[in-house]
Each structure stands twice: as C-alpha cells, then as structure tokens.
Measured scan of single mutants.
Amino acid sequence: VAKRKCPDHGLDLSTYCQEDRQLICVLCPVIGAHQGHQLSTLDEA
C-alpha cells in the first residue's frame, strides 16, 4: 500500500489533526495551517 503524501510539504501523512479531522504531515503543525491544533498519532486516532 502506497503512503499518501501531504500536498503542501510532500511528506508522508503520519499525524491526525483532531480540529480539522484530517491526516497531516509532521511539518503541518510546525510551519503549516495546523499550528496550535490538537493532534493525535495514527495509533491514537
């Protein structure tokens, strides 16, 4: 199974943004649109 990539940063989608209910990469909460959002690992989601 191919991993999905972040459209903004090109990295694997490895984190779940609880606020926006979507998968994001590790850079999205650091330099992207998900700064300050509640996050979960994929195992927790």
Rank of each mutant, 00 (worst) to 15 (best):
S14F: 08
C28L: 00
C28H: 00
H9R: 00
R21T: 10
I31E: 15
C6P: 00
R4E: 09
A45P: 12
D43G: 11
D12K: 07
C25H: 01
C17V: 01
A45D: 12
P29F: 04
T41Q: 13
L42F: 10
P29M: 10
Y16Q: 11
A2M: 12
R21L: 08
G10D: 12
V26C: 12
Q18G: 06
P7W: 04
L11D: 04
L11K: 13
K3C: 03
H9Q: 00
A45V: 11
P29S: 13
L23P: 15
L39A: 11
Y16R: 09
Y16H: 09
C6H: 00
L11Q: 11
S40M: 07
E19R: 07
D43N: 11
R4C: 04
I24A: 06
C17D: 02
K5E: 05
S40H: 13
V30Y: 05
G10A: 07
T15E: 09
R21E: 14
K3P: 07
P7F: 03
Q22I: 07
E19F: 07
C6S: 00
Q35S: 08
I24P: 03
Q18H: 14
K5F: 06
T41M: 08
R4F: 10
R4S: 09
L39C: 08
Q35E: 11
S14E: 14
E44S: 12
L11M: 09
T41E: 13
A2P: 07
T41S: 14
S14I: 13
H34I: 01
P7Q: 14
A2H: 14
H9I: 01
L39F: 11
E19Y: 07
D8K: 14
L11W: 04
G32D: 03
Q18E: 13
P29Q: 08
D8P: 01
Q38Y: 05
L23R: 12
V26D: 14
K3A: 06
P7R: 05
Q22E: 15
G32L: 01
C6M: 00
S40K: 10
G36E: 09
A33G: 11
A45I: 15
K3R: 08
T15W: 04
S40Q: 13
T41P: 12
Q35R: 07
L27M: 14
P7V: 04
V1M: 10
H9E: 01
K3S: 09
Y16V: 09
C17N: 01
C25M: 00
D20R: 08
Q35V: 10
L13P: 04
C25Q: 02
T41V: 10
R4M: 13
T15P: 02
H9K: 00
V1N: 07
D8L: 15
A33P: 09
T15S: 11
E44D: 09
V30D: 12
H34P: 01
D20H: 05
C17S: 02
D8M: 15
V26S: 15
V26K: 15
Q18V: 07
T15A: 07
L27G: 04
R21V: 04
Q22L: 08
E19W: 05
L13G: 03
D43W: 04
H9V: 00
C28K: 01
E19V: 08
V26F: 09
H34S: 01
I31S: 15
K5A: 04
S14V: 13
G36Q: 07
L27P: 02
L42V: 13
V26P: 14
V30G: 05
V30Q: 14
G10T: 03
V1D: 06
L42W: 10
R21F: 06
R21M: 11
Q18M: 12
L13H: 03
Y16S: 05
E44A: 13
G32Q: 03
D12I: 11
T41C: 11
L23N: 07
L42S: 14
H34A: 02
P7G: 05
I24W: 01
Q18P: 10
D20C: 09
T15N: 13
S14Y: 13
P29H: 11
V26Q: 15
Q38L: 08
L11C: 12
P29V: 06
L42Y: 13
E44H: 15
H9F: 00
G36M: 04
S14D: 12
V30W: 05
H34D: 02
G32K: 04
E44C: 09
H37P: 02
A2N: 15
C17T: 01
Q18A: 11
G36P: 02
C6Y: 00
C6F: 02
L39K: 08
Q22M: 12
V1A: 06
K5D: 03
H37G: 01
D12Q: 06
C6K: 01
I31D: 15
R4T: 08
L27E: 15
Y16G: 03
E19T: 12
E19N: 10
C17K: 02
E19L: 07
V1F: 04
I31P: 03
E44K: 09
K3N: 09
V26A: 14
L42D: 14
T15C: 05
Q35W: 05
S40Y: 08
C6L: 00
V30H: 09
C17Q: 02
D43H: 09
P29L: 06
L39V: 11
C28S: 01
I31Q: 14
H9N: 01
V30E: 13
V30K: 15
T41G: 13
Q35L: 07
L42A: 14
C25D: 02
C28P: 01
I31Y: 08
G36Y: 03
K5H: 04
Q35G: 05
Q22W: 02
L11Y: 11
G32W: 01
G36D: 08
G32Y: 01
C28V: 00
C25N: 01
A2S: 14
E44T: 13
L39D: 11
D43A: 10
Q35H: 13
Q35I: 09
G10H: 12
I24L: 08
V30A: 11
L13A: 10
T15L: 04
P29A: 07
L23F: 05
S14R: 07
Q38P: 11
Q38R: 12
C6Q: 01
L42C: 13
Q38D: 14
D8H: 14
G36L: 04
A33S: 13
L11E: 12
L13I: 05
P7E: 03
L39H: 13
P7H: 05
I31G: 12
C17F: 03
V30R: 13
S40G: 13
C17E: 02
Q22G: 06
I24H: 03
A33M: 10
I24E: 03
L11A: 06
S40I: 08
D20S: 05
V1L: 04
G32M: 02
R4D: 13
Q18C: 10
E44W: 05
A45E: 07
A45R: 12
L42R: 13
G10V: 03
K3V: 08
C25G: 01
L13K: 04
Q38M: 12
S14H: 11
H9G: 00
D20A: 02
R21C: 13
A33I: 10
D43E: 13
V1S: 11
I24G: 04
H37N: 02
C28W: 00
H37Q: 02
K3W: 04
T15G: 07
S14C: 07
L42H: 15
Q18T: 08
Y16I: 15
E44P: 13
Q18D: 13
H37Y: 01
C25Y: 02
S40F: 06
R21W: 04
V1K: 12
A45G: 14
L27W: 04
Y16E: 10
K5G: 04
A33N: 11
T41N: 13
L42P: 14
Q22R: 12
Q35N: 07
S14L: 10
C28Q: 00
Y16M: 11
Q18S: 11
G32P: 04
D20Y: 02
Q22P: 01
H37E: 02
S14P: 01
P7K: 03
C17I: 01
D12A: 06
Q18I: 09
S40V: 07
L42N: 12
H9Y: 01
C17A: 02
S14T: 13
L13Y: 05
E44N: 11
L39Y: 06
G36H: 10
Q38V: 08
G32S: 03
L13D: 02
Y16A: 04
Q22K: 14
V26W: 08
A33C: 09
D12Y: 06
Q22S: 13
L23H: 08
C28Y: 00
A2Q: 14
A45S: 04
P29D: 08
L27Y: 08
Q22Y: 13
V30L: 08
A33K: 12
L27C: 03
D8A: 13
L13S: 05
G10C: 05
S40L: 07
C25R: 01
K3L: 07
L11F: 07
S40W: 05
C25T: 02
I31L: 11
H34G: 02
Q38E: 13
L27Q: 15
V26L: 11
L23S: 13
K3G: 09
D8C: 07
T41L: 07
L27F: 06
T15Q: 14
H9C: 07
Y16C: 06
H9P: 00
L13M: 10
K5P: 03
K3Q: 10
R21S: 15
Q18F: 06
D8F: 10
V1C: 11
D12M: 09
H34N: 02
G10I: 03
R21P: 01
P7I: 07
K3T: 11
T41I: 06
R4I: 09
E44F: 06
D12W: 05
D43I: 06
H37V: 01
I24N: 03
I24V: 09
D8N: 09
G36I: 02
Y16W: 10
V1I: 14
L39T: 13
T15K: 15
A33T: 13
V30T: 15
T15V: 04
L11V: 05
H9D: 00
